[in-house]
Design a binder for these strands. Structure first.
Lengths: 222, 222, 222, 222
DNA sequence: AATGAATGAGTATTCATTCAT
DNA sequence: AATGAATGAATACTCATTCAT
């Protein structure tokens, strides 16, 4: 059996085991047994538990980012792009529940070598979302009206595009985990739920609505 | 030293250790040493690592629910209640990072004895949010019109309150992490961002708006 | 069984095992089994193989230096002191062959934590011998004659008291190892052999004789 | 690459590795990698770690004996021969530190297959030294006087030539180590120091002098 | 109320060695 | 002449847990 193939098998088994058991509880014995080889071969190819875990994180995070960004239609309206990305995200995490578990639950609770890789992935997604939000904000207010546009841009940008993007990604991550462990929730349904939750809100936000402690009821239910 | 006090110390140490290291990596030795007692005493009082972990989850989840629901003003408008709850949530998790880590990151990745406790907590919070959403929906459509109200209720129920709650908690958690590592973002600001993100959206949801794949741009930018 | 006693037993077993097998080949399992306890207890008391080895080296080197310097009669003639020290040295190494093996054979071939301790011991012995050689040189030439004495001192000191001491200690170490593994060689016999080898030579050296490449035969057999 | 050449490379790498790491800590992987070949080839040529180690010992011990005995001038006076041999010894060990480490430190601490080879080497050197001592003794007492000669021979034999050789080698090794770490001490100077230490003493031994516990001071300072 | 002494069962990692090609 | 693939057996070290006091 050629090495590349074996390495792929090992990573598959490792992702599954790390995802189910967690980094600490996963044992190299179990991984080797899943592949049907002896432990020394795993070490020969992947050096250590730590490196194996890091390799899993890297592979899964790259696969996820690729899946999410694969279907983008550059010219499409921002909300359509977001919808496409969300469907891809939920579909990918549904098909790779162990990989998603590794990224979402395991990788973040173990020191720097691992968290950094996840942070990189998250930043890629946040950047993607941030771009969409910025574009939509500009559209909503019409590009020709520069004064307005500047105000709107600053409103949205200054306010906290970054925070909103974080919230969106966090919501998506959490929903993905929930969708994975709740039977009967499809990727499209999860994406729709999130659009209802986030986009409809974001859309109004772009249109200039703001929630404040005092006047929220009026503006919210206008 | 009276037993109750010692038990409290032990749970404090355990929450801290479990939160930092994770269930597997946490060691009873470290917990005992943090308290300054011998291991057998920990076992005498708390029986086993598993029971200790379960006790931690129970205590922390009750504390979190209590904190979130403490400030409720029963008669207040729903969005004000949500705002109050979110501020309390961000404040509590910021003050109890280890407890929150135990609930959010550790408890879910370990077999049934633990997940159940977290599910209980989650249900309490979801019930709280569901109540708010239901109340708001009723307000929005006018309580006298029963037919309408039923429709609204069912609409909200169908689009999965549980999913929305997941999204909300995920967004909240993500924002909390981001707020913690971004200087100059307070608990209140994080809560305000989340209100902008979620409530303004939820508010429109209640008012009957729906995002669908075809008509989203029109409705969103109405 | 009290901890101090157990620790002593463990060190005894460790010295024996390290001495016979070497650092790498010695196994913690074997040491624990020799003592009749489980491995975790060895780790609880002595932390690691490395620390255990270091503790053995320290204990044995202190015991050896103590044995050699115990019998010194401060006022006695230098050669008598040397004889006394050598007998003590050979007697101690004969009684503690494993300890001596640890110091002489094992400790020096493993990185810095260990070699340093042996170097310390060796320096203590070299200092002891250096003192004797210097004293004897002064005696041999008569203290009143300052001019002569200075010359003699410089002769011996400059030449290489340090080198001679190193040679003596090395010869003793080597002889001790040989005596240990050769049946029928007593401590006194080993000491006598070394006195014949070294002292009779040193005595003549003190008296002003020098071996040089050209004139050696004449001076040596004068 | 012809087999003989490859075998030489392998032994070079093995000597270096065994000398630096010790028998146990040396790994066949490292040796193969140093040569730049695969492990199976090492096994094909040299069969096993044990045989490889034995081969190293044999090669290095033969090289050392050859180096020491290479410069002998059969007719020369004994002390000149000793001097020549010592210089050769110091020079060879300084140039082949790994080989010397293998012979001196590693070979003796591992069971019978290895020690035997070292014993053979040691016997060759002892025989060489014994020859010198015997010759010198005969010279000193005059060859015609057979009775005397027998006495002298027996004297030397009784006081244990093997022990003296051990002392000499130990002194030489210790001096070699000291010379290596003390700047400005050459092989020749080390050899000279050792001659001062040993030969001047040995010379007097040959001439019939003996150190005894009672009369040492008188004889030593005659 | 509290502990010193002790362990069975695991976990990551390494190494000499072989087989098929 | 040479290697890629593979492993059985061992080794240092850890941990939850108990018992006698």
């Amino acid at each position: 059996m050629p090495r590349a193939e074996r390495e792929r098998q090992m990573m598959d088994a490792a992702v599954r085991t790390f995802g189910q058991r967690g980094y600490r509880a996963a044992s190299m014995d179990e991984i080797a047994e899943l592949v049907g080889v002896s432990k020394p071969l795993v070490y020969l190819y992947l050096n250590s538990k730590e490196e194996l875990f890091a390799a899993c994180i890297r592979r899964e995070s790259e696969a996820l980012v690729a899946a999410v960004t694969a279907g983008v239609e550059p010219g499409a309206p921002a909300d359509r792009q977001l919808w496409t990305g969300l469907v891809a995200f939920f579909a990918h995490t549904a098909e790779n529940p162990h990989g998603w578990a590794v990224l979402h639950r395991q990788a973040r609770m173990h020191g720097e070598p691992f968290a950094a890789e996840v942070t990189k992935m998250r930043e890629a997604l946040v950047a993607y979302v941030t771009g969409l939000i910025g574009a939509t904000a500009r559209e909503a207010h019409g590009t020709p009206d520069l004064a307005d546009r500047d105000v709107a841009d600053r409103d949205v940008a200054d306010c906290d595009v970054a925070g909103l993007a974080q919230a969106l990604v966090g919501a998506a991550e959490s929903l993905a985990a929930w969708a994975n462990e709740t039977p009967g929730v499809s990727a499209k349904e999860a994406a729709a739920t999130l659009m209802n939750f986030a986009w409809t809100g974001l859309g109004n936000l772009m249109a200039g609505e703001r929630w404040t402690e005092q006047e929220k009821r009026e503006t919210a239910h206008r």
